[in-house]
Design a protein around this nucleic acid. Sequence first.
RNA 1: AGGCCCGUAGCUCAGUCUGGUUAGAGCGCUACCUUGACACGGUAGAGGUCAACGGUUCGAGUCCGUUCGGGCCUACCA
Length: 920
Amino acid sequence: MEPEIPKIYSPETIETQWARQWVEQKIYRPTDDPSRPRFALVIPPPNITGSLHMGHMLEHGEIDILMRWHRMKGENVLWLPGTDHASIATQMIVERELGREALPDLEPGPATQRTWQHEGQRRRREMGPEKFIERCWKWKEANGGKIREQMKRMGASCDWTRDRFTMDPAYTRAVVEVFVRLYDEGLIYRGKYIVNWCPRCGTAVSDLEVVHEERQGKLWYIRYPLEKRPGHITVATTRPETMLGDTAVAVNPSDARYRELVDYRVELPLLKRFIPVVADDFVDPKFGTGAVKVTPAHDPNDYEIAERHQLPRIEVIDEEGRMTEEAGPYRGLDRFEARQAVVRDLTAQGLLEKIEDYPLSVGICQRCHSIVEPRLSTQWFMKMQPLAEPARRVVEEGRIQVVPDQYRKIYLDWMARIHDWCISRQLWWGHRIPAWYCLSCNAVMVAKETPHVCPKCGSGSLRPETDVLDTWFSSALWPFATLGWPEPTPDIGNFYPQNLMIMGFDILFFWGARMIMMGMKFMGEVPFRELYIHALVRDAERQKMSKTKGNVIDPLEVTEKYGTDAVRFALAISAAPGTDIVVSPDKFDSYRGFANKIWNAARFVLMNLRKLPENVQHQIADALKPMPGAGFDPAAAPEHLALADRWIFSRLWTITREINEALGQYRFHEAADKIYHFFWHEFCDWYLEWVKSEITKTGEEPAAPATWVNLARVFEAALHLLHPFMPFITEELWHELGRHPREESISLAPFNLVGERVADPIAEKQFETVQELIVALRNAKAELNLQKQKPSAQVACDDLRVLELFRAHQDSIHRLTGLQATNFARGRMTGEAAGVHHTATFDLRILHEEKLDPAAERLRLEREKEKLEQALSQSQKQLDNQGFVSRAPRDVVRGVERRHAELTEHLGKVAESLERLGNE
RNA sequence: AGGCCCGUAGCUCAGUCUGGUUAGAGCGCUACCUUGACACGGUAGAGGUCAACGGUUCGAGUCCGUUCGGGCCUACCA
């Protein structure tokens, strides 16, 4: 901070400086101290294709809050960072870039994106795998570190010396190891099955990569003529073009309408093939016509029917979504053109019975939004049941805690219904599947090292597999592969399992579930003990943020504008578990205001501190310096504590406890709210205002050092509590306030600075009573419109101890209310009733020139009386209720009784005043 | 088709798990205060049948059920 402290906090310079220093000094490496409990978390690795978005900002913000909190609690903390190669996403981006280089003059836009993609795909095939993969690496070097740099700027307290990438050589060894072991155990197999095929991407994708979308479709009713006899069976279909691959018509065996046709044949229109009618339980007699066309090569259900009835499988759609030779006259047509042609021809032949509107859910490729084609294809699969069972059990038994709890059930449901996972992709960028094929005997070899001869026939001509693995295969190993597995590294012993994993719900099955499976399989232990599912970030219209919708708030832009601390705080205070987060510039702005508030509180303290004689400043610094790790205990030196000190320490103690509790349960919003409220509305509004006159005293009679020490202690403690949420401003002010050397960091200091014996309910109660008086006086003054003046007042109170309390603090009361003098009297307020205000404990009146309108006064008191009567009748009702008195907990009953007594007292006074007013 | 979540102030949301005195916050609004930390501020206010109905309970925003409205996820019925 410069000698001239600016009035308005500007984060830019401060944030960039500290961000750089934290990384350079490597202060976020875990220690070697074995006595400390450790807290480890590996980052959900962002894709190298990405740049930071609000979701990352929230995720990293939440993680960082927890990491800093645990570190400050003295734990040995590891936050391991890294990135994911994102096989399919990266390949698409690099293709698009190739396309853009080839066609640089197009206007950017969605259509152009598609053109570039298409052109890029073509150019990729021209280049061949080797050159293309080289290109991907280049792209990774240039862009893959973007998020890392952004994270550093955001102050993420990662151990950057342990940064990992899913295609690091060591990581790749882990991937191969896992693949080979699973294959050897029969948990990975290769086979020809129906898979989700994206004709645009040219690869198989897993069930999870297919998103379902409701679309308005049609149900076409098609007549299949019976063989050698008149009549027909009508089938209903949403995809008429697939009829070209039909190999049967299926009906339910119990369906009387069709019973006699089972095992007969029908003629497949257009192709004039004859296909059998089979009976299968799968068919629902109530749907459509009760007869289903069976297309084994292009529908997973039909595939199963075909298995049961040994039907042939005819592929009529190829890998690019075009009709094959088998489609006869339709060969070469795109699948949707073929649909139109088929419908047209059926209509012409009078075989189309009717068309109905029918809403259907279509499978869309998660990456490119093309309609996915179920297609028969030879792929690699992972058997899920044996792997899923232990992974399901550890969650069910609570060895992994899922937070919030609602996600536990969703996880368990999903795990119970899990299907085998198609892990091979017809892509080039990724981990190549470690398999080879013998060209002479077709044997399949899976091995860690490249084989040179076929073990079966001894042939030396082997062809390596070209498919790569689904990205999520390698991510599933993240919790242990990042620690050096399969080598027996010390990190594995130290940091597996991790304490916590944080992720969004959207990747719970893609990633979370699979990490648990692989962890159990290869480490024999859960990968993490808790799994916290964070919220989704939405915009002001509750829309999910996405680039295609164009509603993204760029974190870099807003952090530049409002400061990282403000954005982090805004996200944290909005992050109630299990609910989505709506962000808007307004929110960031208001927490920028909070940063500014903190800044100005510090400015106030520092400006006055520096006016003190050097020796006093040193005295204060010395009192603060040996800040004991165990916490400061004001009860040890009560003689130095005024009422306000005791109150603020007690409050500090309370919120420290509450924040610890909230963070322990991932209730970020609660923790943030507590510190916000404490700092602004208790520390600034009351405590600073209270001690203001003391510490602004200059010249011969400066404030007692004790006042300063207490103030500095509370401020420092508040900075510590704030630090996990707002790392930058707290680091800066901590150095200024405590004169800490530059190389030290608040992030390595204790979180909790108050000791155990600080809760002081008596002080809290007394201070609250004084606050009550101050608010009442301000209120009365405001009602009379006397804000600009400094009138005097009268206060009357029955309770001698309260009265003494008021008298003892009358200077502060005057300053905080803007009153000149107050007459404090024992008893009740007598005499003229106009302008008298009552509470249960005291009466007050502002002295002023103007004559009050008795009618208005009566109205005021009558309204008050009415409110009191209402409240009183309610408490009366409760106390009259035998059930309540006998069954409610004693302190609740006592509370109502106390309130009832207060109301009675208050009401009595108001009624009395009203009466006197009537007599005037 | 099944499951989950949400409905609280003009707006955005806490509070519901664990029922208990007077339901909170931010933004916005009104009045006053340009007071030597901060006008990105302060003080004092206005604003709520807690979606509706029923139940459990001495007591329900909170627990249970039903309905209405909104959102999301999972699913192989052509």
